[in-house]
Design a protein around this nucleic acid. Structure first.
Lengths: 103, 103
DNA sequence: TTAATAAGTGAGCAAGTGTTCACATACAGA
DNA sequence: TCTGTATGTGAACACTTGCTCACTTATTAA
């Protein structure tokens, strides 16, 4: 109690970490992210079929994931092919799955 | 599009992953977790001082973290010393901080 | 037993969130 | 141009969430 308490990570950094986890902390969004790192690239319709959520709801969630730089897309004709923006995300999710399976 | 789409991780597993991320996806809770892995063990009062949130709010969040098996405590007299329940959590958070800093 | 300290609980409420509905935009083919 | 397909947007709304307030429990010391 009278030892010096540490608080190395800044308020700002931890807030960003919380923001990142909050985005992945939704069933629809984590399903989208999982579908993307298992298939590499998917158009919106494929995502809708895989995650079993309405087209509109998927669109809204894709925007949130895009805004947070977790995914991006490649346009081809009238279709958009989404993919993970950063391999780190896959590592973090897989590590978490491993962690939870050991519980 | 006509290739076989993969969906290896079960709905159930992904839901648990989302639950886990949701718990860490709150500024107060991530600050508590961060304070715990930097100091090893802390009593409630120390946590209150470090995270700058009311005693009551900290109590509520400690309960959520405890229910999700992210932290546990050791009782000593009238005080409770909280600590992380699993080293994986620290790895996941630190990996995420690294990921975000490369952005 | 009384008072003080450490921590937790439950109701209430303001703020935030995810979905749906109706509508809009963008592109391709006839 | 008109039609169909692929995708996105904004408002509305029910549901969730994190905080505060008042109160409670547990432990220790006087």
């Amino acid at each position: 109690m009278n030892k010096v308490l540490k608080n190395d990570h800044t308020e700002e950094t931890l807030f960003e970490v919380a923001e990142f986890f909050k985005v992945l902390g939704d069933p629809t969004r984590i399903k989208i992210v999982s579908a993307l790192f298992e298939n590499g690239e998917l158009c919106v319709n494929d995502i809708v079929n895989l995650v079993d959520v309405s087209r509109t709801a998927v669109s809204h969630q894709l925007r949130i994931l895009k805004d947070k730089r977790i995914i991006s897309y490649r346009k081809e004709g009238q279709m958009k092919f989404y993919h993970l923006d950063d391999a780190h995300v896959e590592v973090i999710v897989l590590l978490t799955i491993t962690h939870l399976s050991h519980h």
